[in-house]
Write a protein that binds this DNA or RNA. Structure first.
Length: 662
RNA sequence: GCUGCUGUAGCUCAGUGGUAGAGCGCACCCUUGGUAAGGGUGAGGUCGAGAGUUCAAUUCUCUCUAGCAGCACCA
């Protein structure tokens, strides 16, 4: 007999082979019906999978939402695969997990990739499978049998997968009824009918490489979102719709902040209002950097290819660089664009080599260290077309870049200081929550393994010293994701629809000082290599402003708002007074506009609300006579507040003070 | 770069094998109205580019290009 301990502490003695479903039935018919799966010693398992040893058992119902959703999504993925093979015979199945809000499955289509138009057909087939309430049955197979089976069925991807699963791992398959099976670790619900046929939706198709590697064949992926009931699904779809309204590209157009056009793809045209945000942010960053004892510099946009060869960028980063011939092109029609003997130059993709060149001017002493150079550096990177994404992924970017040259023994302290500075900036800018990752050595890299061991460990130590290697910060290590010259700490923020983007970073580099021969004279009178820390807090102004816009849904904090106040008239008799009001605000440093148009106040309120103007100062005859204004706040429930002009000026200039100057 | 979708007026989008429409915006006129759209008139388009099929292409086909979603790559 087995001793099964239930969550209430009671113990049941059952025969081996008893399933959690049997126990649920024994407890009561209500539970038997509600139970979706079981947690056996903390591991989620099929409810029909027999118990084999003493265990703690908890039954999972739809009230255990996280577990139930995970199970449901995993099932949806399998049902998707079954449906696709039924609608499109000859399609190979490969792999399909649950995701944060749904599921996907990758297929190798028989003759053409799937299109959006295929989705309704597949959805309909999925509903049939759910309606059929097919039992999902687990079976353990021998590896050779399984491979043979997949090969017989023409499932070459599955066969490859089965052959490569680690030795000693139990190879389980799941049957859907008696006519379809997939290799899967499980767990699954007891039958397809446990799912709500109205709680899922197929969203889109896309390409995806087999095993995530570009060198492999491309598969056709179908994404869906899946929930426990229709209400949850609708709530999710509504959320997606709302998130779409916060898209910085949409708001950028609506608020007249910036635009992109094909003649300069990936490079932003900042309009006056957008550039105000940039300026406010840049001035703020400059104050922070100055306080943190950086020296700001400015370095060349174009440098000779030989310089990039020496830094290593030519070898490891050239595919991302804009290369420019140093030659006066011929104006003759048939002349070649480049003569072939032209010297090459490249637009800088990074500021680091130029900073080393500044460091190298004159002889540096250990007394000069740490030397912190900062630059609002404009870089160009030839990013793949498909990667471009509004302000979040561009080809011309301005980094709040900086390089710290220090001794090895100063390194951990410098990284920690940086983490603190970054933390205070992110809090000022309204991002108390951010994630930290450590990107480890990539395949394509310079430097010895010993160097990488040391550099990676230095960052680990520093994060630990700063107390940020915790779950709150989403701390994790990412193998293979580092830069070619150094491992990097990455600081991530999230956009409107939940995609995360790297913004800040700090990297420990000994390669570049070596390659560019940077040195300082130590206390011992000998020459030593400095360690170089590459670091950015915002990352780039473009990406950071994009995220700033999305996180505030366009309603930026007052100190960053492009237009901080609009003075709107009710009647034209108040025009002169409105100009006086605006003049006073302008004198107090408020970014103000007037709206004297021949329109009703309703119209003006609506328009300025839609363009996210934070303060609307309404003036009519009454205000003009009394020297007051009626203040309407964006997004405020309260109607309006009448106050004297002097009060309004004092209040708004106080509120418009940047967070670090309060 | 790869897969799929999309490209019609400044914006959002209808539409058609016989060279085009709406709403908003814009200009002008009327209106001076107290907190999310007052009324009228008017201007505005090589239907992304090129090639093909056709008597005829914005519409069908192909190529290119740009945008969107995802993949891969990256701040």
């Amino acid at each position: 007999m087995l001793s099964i301990t239930l969550p209430d502490g009671s113990v049941r003695e059952v025969a081996p082979g008893t399933t959690p479903a049997d126990i649920a039935a024994d407890i009561g018919p209500g539970l038997a019906k509600a139970a979706l799966a079981a947690k056996v010693d903390g591991e989620v398992r099929d409810i029909m999978r027999p118990l084999e040893s003493d265990a703690e058992l908890a039954l999972i119902t739809s009230r255990d939402e996280a577990d139930a959703l995970e199970l449901a999504r995993h099932d949806y993925a399998h049902i998707l695969a079954e449906a696709v093979q039924s609608v499109f015979p000859g399609t190979q199945i490969t792999f399909g997990p649950s995701t944060e809000d749904g599921f996907y499955y990758d297929f190798a289509p028989k003759d053409r990739p799937f299109t959006d138009e295929d989705l309704p057909l597949i959805e309909e087939e999925m509903r049939k499978i759910i309606a059929a309430d097919k039992p999902l049955r687990r079976e353990v197979w021998e590896r050779d049998d399984l491979i043979a089976r997949w090969e017989k069925d023409g499932e070459s991807f599955k066969a490859e997968w089965a052959a490569e699963l680690p030795e000693g791992e139990e190879l389980s398959v799941y049957w859907s009824g008696d006519d379809w099976m997939d290799m899967c670790r499980g767990p699954h619900l007891a039958s397809t009918g446990k799912l709500d046929p109205k709680a899922f939706k197929l969203l889109r198709v896309s390409g995806a490489y087999w095993r995530g590697d570009q060198r492999n064949p491309q598969l056709s992926r179908i994404y869906g979102t899946g929930w426990l009931n229709k209400k949850q699904l609708n709530a999710h779809l509504h959320m997606l719709e709302e998130a779409g309204k916060r898209d910085h590209r949409k708001l950028g157009q609506e608020m007249d902040l910036f635009h992109f056009q094909p003649e300069a793809q990936g490079s932003c045209f900042w309009h006056p209002k957008g550039y105000v945000i940039w300026q406010a942010l840049e001035q703020y960053m400059r104050r922070q950097i100055e306080a943190a004892e950086y020296d700001e510099v400015k370095t060349p946009q174009l440098m000779d290819a030989r310089q990039w060869e020496q830094s290593g960028h030519w070898g490891k980063y050239r595919e991302n660089m804009f290369v420019v011939p140093d030659e006066i092109p011929s104006s003759e029609e048939d002349a070649p664009v480049i003569s072939g003997t032209a010297d090459m130059m490249a637009l800088k993709p990074m500021n680091c080599p130029a900073h080393v060149l500044i460091f190298r001017q004159g002889i540096k002493s250990y007394r000069d260290l740490p030397l912190r150079l900062a630059e609002m550096g404009c870089c160009h990177r030839n990013e793949p077309h498909g990667a471009l994404h509004g302000l979040l992924r561009v080809r011309q970017m301005t980094q709040d870049d900086g390089h710290i040259f220090c001794r090895e023994d100063q390194l951990v302290d410098e990284v920690r200081r940086f983490c603190d500075l970054l933390d205070s900036v992110y809090k000022d800018l309204g991002f108390p929550d951010y994630k930290i990752k450590l990107a480890l050595r990539p395949e394509k890299r310079f430097g010895s393994d010993a160097m990488w061991d040391w550099a990676e460990q230095s960052l680990r130590d520093a994060v630990k010293a700063a107390g940020r290697d915790t779950e709150d910060y989403g701390w994790e290590e990412l193998p293979g994701e580092g830069a070619f010259y150094a491992p990097k700490l990455e600081f991530h923020l999230t956009d409107a629809i939940g995609r995360t983007w790297q913004v800040g970073t700090i990297q420990t580099d000994t390669v570049l000082p070596e390659r560019l021969d940077a040195s300082y004279v130590g206390e011992d009178g000998e020459r030593h290599r400095p360690v170089m820390l590459h670091r950015a807090i915002l990352g780039t102004f473009e990406r950071f402003i994009g995220i700033l816009i999305e996180s505030h849904a366009g309603k930026l904090p007052l100190w960053l708002a492009p237009v901080q106040a609009v003075v709107a008239t009710i009647v034209s008799d108040a025009d002169d007074y409105a100009l006086t009001v605006a003049g006073k605000l302008r004198d107090a440093g408020i970014r103000v506009e007037t709206d004297l148009r021949n329109e009703k106040i309703n119209y003006k309120v609506r328009e300025h609300s839609l363009t996210k103007v934070p303060n609307l100062l309404v003036v009519g005859k009454r205000e003009a006579e009394e020297g007051t204004i009626a203040l309407r706040r964006l997004g405020s429930d309260e109607h309006q507040k009448v106050m004297t002009l002097d009060e309004a000026v004092a209040m708004l200039s106080e509120e418009a003070t940047p967070p670090d100057m309060r």
